[in-house]
Lab assay of single mutants.
Amino acid sequence: AQEYRALYDYTAQNPDELDLSAGDILEVILEGEDGWWTVERNGQRGFVPGSYLEKL
């Protein structure tokens, strides 16, 4: 798994998404072809927009 940093804040719109704060460090589990990536942070897993992340 790769570590990424959130570039922007994101507020989850659905229960299966995660909130992001700019600067958060996340582990990317799966890069979805639809642009939604499965990530894990502090034991929580959910979808976030891949375009909001940069690889560390």
Rank of each mutant, 00 (worst) to 15 (best):
R5A: 07
P49M: 06
A6G: 02
L26V: 14
E33W: 05
G35Q: 07
P15W: 05
G46H: 02
V39I: 05
G46E: 01
D9V: 02
D34T: 11
A6F: 00
A1G: 13
S21A: 14
E33H: 12
E3K: 15
A22N: 06
L26I: 14
Y10W: 07
N14P: 01
E54S: 08
E33F: 06
G32K: 12
T11D: 09
V48D: 00
E40W: 04
Q13H: 10
R45G: 03
D19F: 01
G35T: 04
L30E: 15
Y8Q: 15
Y4A: 10
Y8C: 11
Q44S: 13
G23K: 01
E17Q: 15
L30P: 02
F47W: 10
D24Q: 07
L20F: 12
E17W: 01
R41C: 07
W36Q: 08
E31H: 07
L20E: 00
W36Y: 13
E3S: 09
S51K: 14
A22Y: 06
Q13P: 01
E17L: 01
W37Q: 04
F47A: 13
E31L: 05
Y8H: 14
Y8I: 08
Y10N: 00
I29H: 06
D19P: 05
P15L: 09
A1R: 15
A22F: 06
G46S: 01
E31F: 09
E17D: 05
L18H: 02
L18W: 02
R5E: 05
G32A: 12
I29F: 10
L26E: 02
R45F: 05
P49D: 06
T38V: 10
E27C: 14
K55R: 09
G35R: 04
D16R: 14
D34G: 10
A22Q: 10
I29Y: 07
K55H: 04
E40T: 13
W37T: 07
L18C: 06
A22G: 05
D24T: 04
E3G: 11
A12Q: 04
N42T: 08
Q44G: 05
L26S: 02
W37K: 06
E27M: 09
D19L: 01
K55L: 09
W36I: 14
L7V: 12
R5L: 08
A12L: 01
